[in-house]
Nucleic acid binder design. Structure first.
Lengths: 343, 343
DNA sequence: TACGTTTCTGAAAACCTTTTCGGTCGACCG
DNA sequence: CGGTCGACCGAAAAGGTTTTCAGAAACGTA
């Protein structure tokens, strides 16, 4: 039976076929292909050659059935359209060697019952482990303690301290940003950020203020400008800021979106960036940061790294036992042209 | 053995356990749970109850082994970080009922040998089908004709006409954009777009010009302004355009990024949008389009829809036979505030 | 009572691979 | 030459499910 355009080509070739062609039993064929010691070099060569000739590829389902290890992990996300899952996913993907482990991607779309649903399906598929990545860097409900596989929470930590969670270090990120501005010689530093209901906003602000305090400085404008995660808020807040505090020489924006708004208004107001006012963003969302005028210095959360670590922890946990608590991954500064030493 | 924090909890519960608890054989247990006719209602109830009590979930690997259907599909992408794969993926995800089918996500990162690698792995896992989504809307090499499973190419069409490809309708998209501008009463319409090496750029331009011709109009500036897919090019081209053709009353930008650049320069030049110049983008990349000043009217490529259709075609093809050729999915206009009737 | 029918149940094969364990064969030693 | 040993190979079980087919039970009919 010929294979015509996607129609399955008869039966798939199995180890039996290989064995038959090589003139050995399936047992030795298996051993030969898996590099076991129990087979003569000459026999092994014959088997390998037969396998290639038939372009045999072992049925992973059957393997999984007997080894009790499927070689798959589930990635349960809640914001696919968001920009957080994707880098994490990529990091995870390349931490598992792609030939060893494949990842099932499930998007729960923020819906708890859909999440339970996906969870059931994944367990039914006998995944070896689970990575749960949330939509925002706030605590999320645990999946529970009595799952048959290890779970790592990424980005959104679990509310159960017995789980293992990996999060970005927002406090340190805020500190990083302000530290950079101070090193640039800035002294009148303002902080415009997003929704105060986000712990990310609070943490970054805390880190920023801590670093300011160390330098004996106060926030320009006297307080953190909380608002929304949008360009429009960036614009609005900047207008107010320039009004109230015209001698500001640096602005730390809580996100690249906000930073875009900040840049816009500074431009309108005729303040040069970076010579008069330095601006730093957060997220390193390339489309926004790299295309800004001028290109935006920003804090990268190292999400791929976070994903990679999540995968490593999970991998280590499979078969072994998992750590607990919240592990924190530091970000890094990406310097572009929106910041520069003063003078 | 207790389950402690992710460590596997002894042996998983199997159909045998259910059968034993219900006092029947595994055969009847299977039939009972799968709604087969061969079992008395009372027996079925007993089995179901036992299954729930043990919270049994069938081993999909074993099922797949015998039914020759794994209930999985592979999604092979080349631009995870890009904005095209994700909506397609989401569309696909919700077209397959999530309890029926799970999707393996693989990112080849534009590397052909990594792609072969992933392909082998997916076939080894006995996926029921494959969706291949490319990074750019140009032709890509076919995976080949003699695969054991059906394949649908999305976004990037395959170079083999015997394959089934689904692409966005760029010609129609260009027409849509210009049609909207004409209906707004605009007559001096310019087109600034990206890299002329992209068929998307060419097609959109062709559609735009076709619609202009129907209205007896010519492109303002005389020609299409090809360049790069960047804000910077949008800015540069707009400056040139205003210079050469100051009475332009509408600009069709080949992407939202370009449109952002266009808006920036118009703003600087003191041209009001939309009262003096209407601007329309392409992609409906929300972060750019909705946050623009003013919010950007744009063409949405309906990528989720494309993903959904891809999944449907694939689903239909599994077991049956697949269509061939290139199928085209129309986009739709998203009107925001950057366009409005003249006067 | 004998027999046919219908309805339900269970044994067993099948899916494909890995792994254990016993067996064969030749070589080597005493 | 008998025995031991090592190297290599194959038969068979296992993993969890579905499906086929034969058998059992219950019931109605002649």
């Amino acid at each position: 039976m010929e294979s015509t355009n996607g129609t399955a080509t008869g039966r798939a070739v199995t180890l039996r076929d290989v064995a038959r062609l090589a003139g050995v039993s399936v047992a030795t064929a298996s051993k030969a292909l898996n590099g076991k010691q129990q087979v003569r070099a000459e026999t092994r060569a014959r088997v390998v050659q037969a396998a290639e000739q038939l372009s045999f590829s072992p049925n992973t389902l059957a393997q999984g059935l007997i080894t009790q290890r499927s070689g798959t992990v589930g990635l349960l996300t809640s914001d696919l359209e968001g920009r957080f899952s994707i880098p994490i996913l990529m990091g995870a993907e390349d931490a598992f060697g792609s030939d060893q482990t494949s990842v099932f991607l499930c998007d729960a779309r923020g819906d708890t019952i859909r999440e339970r649903h996906h969870l059931r399906a994944l367990l039914s598929r006998r995944v070896d482990g689970l990575i749960v990545v949330g939509a925002r860097p706030d605590t999320r409900p645990s999946l529970g303690r009595d799952l048959p596989v290890p779970v790592v929470y990424a980005y959104s930590p679990s509310d159960d301290p017995a789980d293992l969670s990996l999060v970005t270090d927002n406090v340190d990120g805020g500190r990083l940003a302000v530290d950079h501005l101070i090193r640039c010689g800035r002294r009148r530093i303002a902080h415009i950020t997003g929704d105060p209901g986000y712990s990310a906003a609070q943490d970054r602000a805390r880190g920023a203020q801590a670093r300011l305090a160390e330098a004996g400085l106060e926030l320009a404008g006297g307080e953190v400008w909380f608002g929304m995660w949008s360009e429009a808020w960036g614009r609005g807040a900047t207008r107010l800021l320039l009004d109230r505090c015209p001698d500001v020489d640096a602005i730390f924006a809580g996100s690249d979106e906000i930073a875009r708004g900040v840049l816009d208004v500074l431009h309108e107001a005729g303040r040069d960036v970076p010579s008069q006012v330095a601006v730093i963003g957060y997220d390193n969302w390339t489309i926004l940061a790299a295309n800004a005028r001028p290109p935006l210095t920003t804090v990268d959360m190292n999400l791929e790294e976070l994903g990679r670590i999540a995968a490593q922890r999970l991998f280590a946990a499979i078969g072994g036992t998992l750590g607990t608590g919240v592990e924190t991954v530091p970000g890094r500064l990406i310097t572009r042209e929106s910041t520069a030493p003063l003078g």
